[in-house]
Computed example of a mutant assay.
Amino acid sequence: MTTMPTAAAAHLSYVLRLADNALILGQRNGEWCGQGPALEEDIALANISLDLIGQARLLYSHAAALEEAAGGARKTEDSYAYFRGEREFANYTLAELPHAGPLAGTARAARDYAVTITRNFLYAALMCHLWSALRASADAQLAAIAAKSLKEARYHLQHAGEWLVRFGDGTAESHRRAQAAVDYLMPYTAEFFSADAVETAVATAGIGPLNADLQAAWQQDVAATLAEATLAAPAPVRHVTTGKHGEHSEHMGFLLAEMQSLARQHPGATW
C-alpha cells in the first residue's frame, strides 16, 4: 500500500475498514452460535453474523481488485481475513469487545446479551445511514455492495432496537443490564465520527461520506430508541478509541487467535 498513489491508498484503506468492521463484528456475533439465550435468538444471531461476514467477503474481494489494479500484490478475501496481523486490522474498537462489561478479561468471561444487543444496535444505526449514502458512491462496485448491505443493516437495526426496548422497558433487572450496556458502549461510538485523512480523501473523491455528516441523524435515531426503552445516554466523553488506526484493545488478540488459527496452521488448504 505504501507504493500506491495517495488516492488509491485511501480508497483501499476505506474499503478495508468497512470489511474489517463487518468481519470482526460477525465473528463476535458468531460466538453466540449454540449459546443463545433462546433457540430463536441463537438462530437470529447466527444469521446476523452470516450477513456481516457476507458483507466482509464482498468488500475484501473488492479490496483485492483495488489493490491489484494499483500495482499491489494479488490477494484474496482469505489473505485479508486470516493472514494479517492485529495492527493491520482497521475495525472500530467497539466491534472487537467481548460480550461482557468493562472488567471482562478474556473472551471466556460470562456473556451478557444486553451488551451484544446494544452493540449491534449502535453499529447498525450507523450502518443504515452509511450504506444508504454509499449507494451514491463514485465507486460503482462499492455502491452495489451498499445497496445489498443496506437491506441487511435495516433488519439488524430492527432486531436490536426491538430487544433494547424490551430490555429497557422490562423488568428491573433487564433495565439495569441494558442501562449498564449503554453506559459501557456509547463512549466507544465517538470513533465512528472522528474524521481522518482516509475518510477526508474518499469524501473528496466522492467515494464515501464523512461520517461526521451522519452523526446528527444517528444521534436522533439512537435517542428515539433509548427514550422508548426508558434508557438514558451517558455524558459524552473526550477520549476517542483508535481501532480504525490499528491500535486495538487487549481483546483483539484473543479474537484473532481463535478466528485465524486453523487457516494459519494449514495455509492454502481447501475444503
Rank of each mutant, 00 (worst) to 15 (best):
Q27I: 15
F89Q: 02
E40G: 09
L97H: 03
Y92F: 15
L66H: 06
D51V: 13
R74T: 13
Y82S: 07
N29G: 01
E88F: 02
H99Y: 02
G26I: 07
A73L: 11
N47S: 15
E68A: 15
I53N: 02
G72C: 05
R111G: 10
G105S: 06
A90S: 14
A44R: 10
A70H: 05
R119G: 11
A109D: 13
C33S: 15
G26E: 03
N91L: 06
A114I: 05
A56R: 06
L66S: 10
D112F: 04
F121H: 11
A109Q: 08
L66I: 13
R119Q: 08
T106I: 09
K75F: 06
C33N: 09
A110C: 00
G71M: 08
G101N: 02
A114W: 01
G71V: 13
A46P: 03
A63T: 12
A44M: 14
S79T: 15
D42W: 01
A73T: 10
G85F: 01
A124N: 13
A63H: 06
N29T: 02
I117K: 01
W32Q: 06
F83P: 12
N120P: 04
L66T: 08
G101H: 03
G36Y: 09
A44Y: 01
A64Y: 01
G105W: 00
E41R: 14
P98S: 05
T93W: 02
R57Q: 13
A56M: 09
A114M: 01
L122E: 06
D42A: 03
F89I: 12
Y123E: 07
W32S: 10
L66C: 05
T93V: 12
A109L: 05
G105P: 00
Y60W: 04
E68G: 00
T76M: 04
L39H: 09
Y60I: 10
L58Y: 06
F121E: 04
Q35P: 00
R84C: 09
Y123K: 03
N120Q: 14
I43V: 15
A46V: 15
A81Q: 08
G101P: 02
L39I: 15
G34H: 06
A69C: 03
F121S: 03
F121N: 06
Y92E: 09
Q27W: 14
L103C: 00
Y92D: 09
R57E: 14
V115G: 08
Y60T: 11
C33H: 11
A69P: 04
G71E: 04
I117L: 14
A124P: 08
N120A: 14
Y60P: 13
L59G: 04
C33L: 15
A38Q: 10
L45A: 07
R87Y: 00
F121I: 11
L58S: 13
A64D: 01
L122A: 10
E86D: 10
D51S: 11
Y123A: 14
E67L: 13
L103G: 00
Y82T: 03
Y123R: 07
N29M: 07
E31L: 15
A100K: 00
P102T: 03
A81L: 03
G105C: 01
L39E: 00
G72N: 04
R111T: 11
P37T: 14
D42T: 07
A104F: 09
L97Y: 04
A63W: 06
A109C: 09
A64I: 07
E88L: 05
